[in-house]
Design a binder for these strands. Structure first.
Length: 556
RNA sequence: GCGCCCGUAGCUCAGCUGGACAGAGCGACAGACUUCUAAUCUGUGGGUCGCAGGUUCGAAUCCUGCCGGGCGCGCCA
């Protein structure tokens, strides 16, 4: 907790610590106390400097506290400072500090906590990246919800983010998909279907085939049973286009925006794959062996070298990724971030090798690994198998629990943790669902302000702070004051789940405040202060929910 | 075998750039609506932080070794 509202206090503690021990302490941590009787804010700084000064922590803490008490300028901030435990400095803050914080937050409006990143970077973020051979499932949904939230966070703290989705529309899987669509088309026109053995069986394949037939009619009669090469190419492309369109539409429904869908096939068609291999060859990073062309990825930490061109002349998936990452490197600005599934973690060093080969520091590529998500219903794991067709699609998930719950639940846990999403809980339209808990807090703020409006109570931004504050008011203001730090931290760590945790805490503080304190109809100072507090809380809840891509309803 | 991730309350998980008796939600139990929405609040119960060492004034957090689980280690994509 390093709220900007306590910078003065932080600096004063640092100065006092140096004065007391001679030790220079650049970073003075301020932490929320674990127990209410410890005051509003605490600092363990004395323990740290005492160690380096070779003195007992409590003694050092006493010296610092005494020095702080002698500073008149702090009287506006600190009500009381005490030394406790092994050497903690516990502060109780003045009502005036709370008043100022609330005014500043309400005045900052949507800019509160924004733009704090240093330095501000231009970042190319790649996420989701599906195969256009089938519908997106829960795994894609987690990538989408997480990636989009990270993008919003990075943008909010001041970075410039370009969102990109790589489309794997090339290779054997696309051929199989094309053949599968052609087979369903053959059925529709009364021909014998030639469904490949490891082809695609889902009902959506037939849907796609029907859509294509509506467009091209019977033009392929006699050419799909079995299909000729040209027909296969047509059905692969036409089918892939339609799957991609579905993907785009579903992501839009989920409020996930992409700046570009990047086609792998175009990399091949435009010669970038070959050019990429040539570039690596020119850099001396390839060699020929057994008729294949190898990339010396082991020079960059990979377990072994990898094939770029097979002995039959075909390029590998890696070759396309080389081309793609070279292309991204030339466009990224300062940094590129890939969000990959856990099953691709072995890819990190290969991609770093590409970046290094292109002459960049490997640090400019950040790979975030997403662990698995599974579903649980009635206390039992929902079995999901692609082959059995029991995979839960993103489409079904949204129809089941809604976009807000889907997004909220999928970013509630760290991307680094495999977790189980409880469908019963997510479906719950009532009290035990954390999504509504946070949204309800926002609606409640709106409700209070609507009531004030109705009562003809206007806002008074330059009110004086009340002399006495309820503990719930103190807790709420302290929470709000921590927002800039919380959001900066979530962005820096690429950890939107921290934002979720913050919002749940904030919602809890608001609800507690609501039950203990009335806003409308109190004395002028109290009413004015609580109005501004309500405005500030509503604002931060709205900002937070927006960063998660979750709605902030005014009424529920 | 090697690499990455994970083992924290009955369940799902935070906390992990070291700080006060370890947190939340759900579930269980007991209370609170004549007042700005009870989709809320208050309280109770619940834990050898996988195990064992080490570093430290202080370890869930850092180091080492085990045990257990997930994922990966193709001239597949």
């Amino acid at each position: 907790m390093t709220t900007p509202f306590l910078d003065d206090l932080s600096r004063a503690i640092a100065a006092a610590a140096t004065q007391a021990t001679g030790v220079v302490e650049p970073a003075v941590p301020l932490v929320p106390p674990t127990r209410p009787e410890h005051g509003d804010i605490a600092s363990p700084v004395a323990m740290g400097v005492a160690k380096r000064a070779g003195r007992p922590p409590r003694e050092v803490a006493d010296d610092i506290a005494e020095a702080l008490r002698r500073r008149d300028d702090l009287a506006l901030i600190i009500d009381r400072v005490e030394v406790a435990g092994p050497g903690f400095l516990n502060f109780r803050l003045r009502p005036g500090w709370f008043g100022r914080v609330v005014r500043d937050i309400a005045a900052a409006d949507r800019e509160f906590g924004a733009g704090s990143a240093k330095p501000r970077e231009a970042i190319l973020l790649e996420f989701v990246s599906p195969n256009p051979t089938g519908p997106m499932h829960v795994g894609h949904a987690r990538h989408a919800a997480y990636g989009d939230a990270v993008a919003r966070l990075l943008d909010f703290v001041g970075h410039t983010v370009w969102r990109e989705c790589y489309v794997n529309d090339y290779g054997r899987q696309m051929e199989l998909f094309g053949a599968s669509v052609a087979a369903r088309y053959a059925e529709l026109i009364g021909d014998v279907p030639h469904l490949p053995e490891d082809g695609y069986h889902g009902a959506y394949v037939a849907e796609i085939a029907a859509e294509i037939r509506t467009e091209v009619g019977d033009r392929f009669v006699g050419r799909v049973s079995p299909p000729d090469a040209k027909a296969l190419g047509f059905f692969a492309t036409a089918g892939g286009d339609r799957m991609l369109a579905r993907t785009q539409s579903e992501l839009e429904t989920c409020r996930v925006r992409m700046d570009r869908y990047f086609s792998e096939a175009t990399l091949h068609a435009e010669g970038h794959v070959v050019a990429g291999i040539d570039a690596l060859r020119a850099a001396g990073l390839t060699y020929e062996d057994d008729g294949a062309t190898w990339f010396r990825t082991s020079d960059f930490g990979d377990e072994k070298d990898r094939v770029l061109v097979r002995s039959d002349g075909a390029t590998t998936y890696l070759a396309a990724d080389v081309a793609y990452h070279l292309d991204k490197a030339s466009r990224m600005g300062d940094r590129m971030i890939d969000i990959l599934g856990a099953d691709h973690h072995g890819y990190i060093n290969r991609l770093k090798a590409v970046i290094a080969a292109a002459g960049y520091s490997t640090d400019v590529l950040e790979v975030l690994i997403m662990q698995l998500v599974s579903l649980i219903e009635q206390g039992e794991a929902k079995r999901m198998s692609k082959r059995a067709g029991t995979l839960v699609t993103l489409h079904e998930l949204i129809n089941d629990i809604g976009v807000d719950a889907t997004r909220f639940f999928l970013v509630e846990r760290s991307h680094d943790t495999a977790f189980e999403l409880d469908l019963n809980l997510a479906r719950e339209q009532s009290q035990e669902n954390p999504v509504y808990y946070v949204q309800y807090a926002h609606a409640r703020c709106c409700s209070i302000l609507a009531k004030a409006d109705q009562a003809g109570v206007g806002r008074a931004p330059d009110h004086a702070a009340p002399d006495e504050l309820d503990p719930s008011e103190r807790a709420l203001v302290l929470r709000l004051s921590d927002w800039p730090d919380a959001v900066a931290d979530a962005a820096a760590r690429r950890a939107p789940h921290r934002l979720v945790a913050y919002l749940k805490d904030l919602a809890r503080d608001l609800h507690a405040f609501y039950h203990r304190c009335r806003v409308v109809g109190e004395s002028a100072d109290v009413q004015a202060f609580r109005m501004e507090l309500t405005v500030a809380t509503r604002q931060v809840l709205a900002l937070g929910l927006e960063l998660l891509g979750v709605g902030a309803p005014e009424r529920m």
